[in-house]
Simulated scan of single mutants.
Amino acid sequence: MTDVVRYRVTGMDCASCAAKIERAVRSAGVDDLSVSTASQILTLNVARSDKRLSGVEAAVSKAGYHLTPIEPESGSAETMRPTHMTAGYRWALWIVIGLNVGYGLIEMIGGFLAGSQALKADALDFLGDGLITLFGVLAIGWSLAWRARSALVQGVFLGGLGMGVIGSTIYRVFTAQQIEAGLMGTLAFVALAVNVAAALVLIPHRAGDANVRAVWLFSRNDALGNIAVVLAAGLVAWSGSSWPDLAVAFAIAGLFLHSSWVIVRDALNDMRAPTDN
């Protein structure tokens, strides 16, 4: 009979991260696993004495993430080991949270002022990243059940924001509105700079070339959205049409909704899992 081995994952905040962690675990020879983006927990259905665990920890670390074992106590209860976070790393995460949430609010207001749905959708990405990172910092040491419940609320909230942007974008399809392409492009350029700043803040606290590369890959994915908004602003200015803005808004908001759904799905699965309360 196999045991259940759980790890808290530091650095995972999206479905793409979960997929990379799953590939890393499988590369170490373990196929019976689940990765929850909601509770940021990796679960392996293997014996605790399994020699492959050291390989799993090394593979996940090489992929750019950190695993902290969740130790079983008496009965079915589990407890977290003390976090590996240094004071510097914790402050870096708070700076990243401030950058993402702060600029997300600024970009959302800018989206209304510029009449740009793409800016509003990109603002959601900033807000989502910031709130997920905030959850990761605050939830250290929480039980799996409480992490899942909190993540469920967060996923539903983020999904509601995403649906709001989708709905207003559909409304804009049928109503003409002048878009301030200059303001739209400027805010998108600043968004790109904020993403680069967040990466620079994190890199000194991620050991190893692979971990540094993981920070840049994550920032690159966010930057692609910023660049898409910049290109849309250029096309709006060139063509005088709002369609480039609407197309980018649908694409970014759709990806955001998918991430929100993954959080809700994983949270519900975690809540059904046998664990302590």
Rank of each mutant, 00 (worst) to 15 (best):
T2V: 12
D3L: 03
R6A: 12
Y7Q: 06
Y7G: 00
R8C: 02
R8Q: 12
V9P: 05
V9E: 06
T10C: 01
C14S: 09
A18L: 03
A19C: 05
I21C: 00
A24H: 00
S34P: 01
V35S: 02
S36R: 01
S36P: 00
T37L: 03
L42M: 03
L44N: 04
L44F: 06
R48C: 02
R48Q: 12
E57P: 00
S61V: 02
I70T: 00
I70E: 05
S74P: 00
T79Y: 15
R81W: 02
M85G: 04
A87D: 14
R90G: 03
R90H: 12
V96A: 03
V96W: 07
G110T: 01
F112R: 11
A118I: 09
A118L: 08
A121C: 11
F126L: 10
L127S: 08
F135H: 11
L138S: 02
R147S: 13
A148T: 07
A148Y: 09
G155A: 04
V156W: 11
V156L: 15
F157Q: 05
M163L: 15
I166L: 15
Q177E: 13
G182K: 06
G182I: 05
T186I: 09
A191F: 11
A193V: 07
V196S: 04
A197D: 03
L200H: 02
A207Y: 06
G208C: 07
L217D: 05
F218A: 09
N221R: 15
N221L: 13
A223S: 13
L224E: 10
I227M: 11
I227Y: 09
V230G: 00
V230C: 09
V236K: 03
I252W: 08
A253E: 02
V264E: 11
V264A: 10
M271L: 15
M271I: 15
T275F: 01
